[in-house]
Amino acid sequence: MTARPAPLVCWRAVPASDLLFSKWGDDVVVFHPASGLTHLVNGPAALLLCRVLARPRTLDVAAQALAAGSAQKDEHFVTEVAALIERLEELGLVERIAG
């Protein structure tokens, strides 16, 4: 028997139309009416929610999209993005789906 490859994990944000945003400089406040919770997030997190994870993406693709136009594509950066996505998942703003 050959081992099955691990399923590819993708991430998708709550539709931006279901969230309310308010931006002051680099700080963004996000309100999630479904949960009644408000979160203060940074620019990259807001970018993930509004744009990058509007469609299901793997971690690598999301990190690439976030780093577009910059040189930050090293392993450490991907680890940081993974931690950020997992935090957004804990907050109920991002969900994990089968790839």
Partner: peptide, 24 residues
Amino acid sequence: PSAEGFMRLVTNAFNYDMLGKAGF
């Protein structure tokens, strides 16, 4: 900063979350 002011304000609200979009 304003964002900090926002978060401090909603922490001290009785019914902000119940009002949904209007509260935000």
